[in-house]
């Protein structure tokens, strides 16, 4: 243990509190938490909830970066609280606020409705089309076909990318990074035949064309999905399709 860590007995937290019906706006409240180098922000919040204030509200489940439910703004940057170690924020204080760009239900709990509705809209499931299923009822994929979409399938819907996206902040209609990356995931799946159903939405002005490639969605993504790259690729594909349909108007492919 470094000397800096041993001399720090506690670490300060500034946590956004909001109780609907009581508070007019979220306010930051100060807490002191025992410092443990192996603790993450989520551990500190659970300590506070157990030992100091049981009304502190936040979502969490797996504690290991898989469930995607503990996203929050940590010192102004969207992070999974289970992956944000206290030792990286010395000497503190650590400011914890609900994910930006979403309405606040209470304390650190945000309203997910907008995202859920957009997610459903792009049909994030395999659409088999009218092909008969394989005779042995098993779709085979080569490793290369899997590699074509695997990266996008790693998304855990944690919404950090939406919090990092200034376009989504100002254009509520924008489908947003994760939804567009997931649409790309199914577009590129060799088993799927639903492209044309999705493109009506994803290739529209509220889809990929609202994105100006700020790139912060990819910078904050804990699963290296790279939504910004997915959207850029979709722009290339949509553009090639546009020129194909103009230069070859007699039926597509």
């Amino acid at each position: 243990m470094t000397s800096g860590a041993t001399t720090t007995q506690t670490i300060g937290f500034e946590i956004a509190r909001y109780l609907p019906g009581e508070d007019r706006a979220p306010t930051l409240r100060h807490y002191d938490v025992p410092y443990r180098p192996e603790w993450v922000v989520l551990d500190a919040l659970n300590y506070l909830k157990d030992e100091v204030d049981g009304t502190l509200s936040f979502r969490w489940s797996c504690r290991m970066g898989v469930c995607g439910s503990c996203g929050a703004m940590v010192n102004g940057v969207p992070r999974l609280m289970c992956a944000a170690f206290l030792r990286d924020y010395l000497p503190g204080p650590i400011r914890v606020e609900p994910l930006a760009n979403f309405p606040i239900e209470r304390d650190l709990v945000i309203v997910l409705d907008d995202f859920m509705q957009k997610l459903r809209a792009v049909k994030p499931w395999i659409i088999p089309g009218d092909r008969p299923p394989p005779a042995d009822a098993e779709y085979r994929q080569t490793p290369a076909q899997l590699a074509d979409f695997k990266q996008y399938s790693m998304c855990i819907n944690c919404l950090l990318c939406y919090s990092a996206c200034p376009v989504y902040q100002h254009e509520e209609e924008f489908l947003g990074p994760a939804v567009l990356a997931l649409a790309q995931r199914y577009d590129h799946d060799s088993r799927d035949r639903g492209n044309s159903q999705r493109h009506e939405l994803t290739w529209s002005d509220e889809g990929i064309w609202d994105c100006t490639f700020v790139g912060e969605c990819s910078a904050v993504c804990p699963k290296h999905v790279d939504p910004a790259g997915a959207i850029q690729q979709a722009k290339v594909e949509s553009t090639m399709d546009w020129y194909r349909s103009v230069l070859w108007p007699f039926g597509r492919r």
Partner: peptide
Amino acid sequence: PYPRRRSRRWFIERWAYQRF
């Protein structure tokens, strides 16, 4: 719920956005 907030000055609030 408390409504989502927008910043008019978002593009100077973080170095990543200034860079953009």
